[in-house]
Computed example of a mutant assay.
Amino acid sequence: MKLSELEFHLEDFLLYCQSKNLSPKTLSSYEQSLKLFLACLKAEHGAEDVQRVR
C-alpha cells in the first residue's frame, strides 16, 4: 500500500519522536490523534496533499 504524502509525513514525525526517546504511551497518543486529524482532513476537506493544509 502506497502512503499518501500526509501519511508519509506522519510516519516521518513518529520516527522523529521515537529518536527523541518519547515514551511508548506518548507515541501511541500522538499516532492516534494525528491519524484522526488526517482522516478528518481527507473526509471533510479532501486534503491529501501537504500543500493544501494551511
Rank of each mutant, 00 (worst) to 15 (best):
Y30E: 06
E44Q: 11
S29F: 10
Y30V: 03
G46I: 05
F37V: 04
P24L: 11
K35H: 13
D12P: 07
S4H: 00
C17D: 12
L41R: 11
A43H: 11
K20A: 15
E31H: 06
L6S: 11
N21K: 15
N21T: 15
L36P: 04
L27Q: 03
L10N: 13
S23H: 04
L10V: 08
V53L: 03
L15E: 15
E31F: 03
N21Y: 09
L38H: 10
L15H: 05
Y30M: 05
H45L: 11
L34M: 00
S29K: 09
L41C: 00
Q51I: 07
E44L: 06
L14E: 04
M1F: 14
V53P: 01
E5H: 12
L34A: 08
F37W: 12
E5G: 05
L22H: 13
Y30I: 06
Q32Y: 11
V53A: 00
F8D: 07
T26M: 10
E48M: 06
K35D: 05
E31W: 06
L38E: 08
S19N: 01
L15R: 10
L36S: 15
D12L: 01
R54D: 01
A39N: 11
K42S: 10
R54C: 00
K25V: 01
K2M: 11
L15S: 13
F13G: 08
S19A: 00
S4G: 04
D12Y: 13
E44K: 08
F13E: 14
S4T: 14
A39P: 03
F13Y: 15
A47I: 01
G46S: 09
C17R: 02
L3R: 02
S19F: 02
L22K: 14
S28T: 15
P24N: 15
R52A: 00
L3F: 09
K25I: 13
D12A: 09
S29L: 12
S4M: 07
S33W: 12
C17M: 11
E48I: 01
N21S: 13
A47E: 06
L15F: 03
V53M: 00
S19E: 00
L15G: 04
K2Q: 14
P24S: 14
S23C: 02
R52P: 01
K42I: 01
L34G: 08
Y16F: 14
K42T: 03
E7V: 09
L15I: 04
R52C: 02
L41V: 05
K35A: 02
K35S: 14
L3M: 02
L14M: 10
E5D: 01
M1T: 08
A43I: 06
L10Q: 11
F8W: 05
K2C: 09
L27S: 01
S29V: 13
T26Y: 02
K25P: 13
L27F: 11
S28H: 09
L3D: 01
K25S: 13
L6F: 00
M1A: 15
L41M: 04
M1K: 12
V53I: 03
E11Y: 11
Y16N: 09
D49Y: 00
S4A: 05
Q51D: 08
D12K: 02
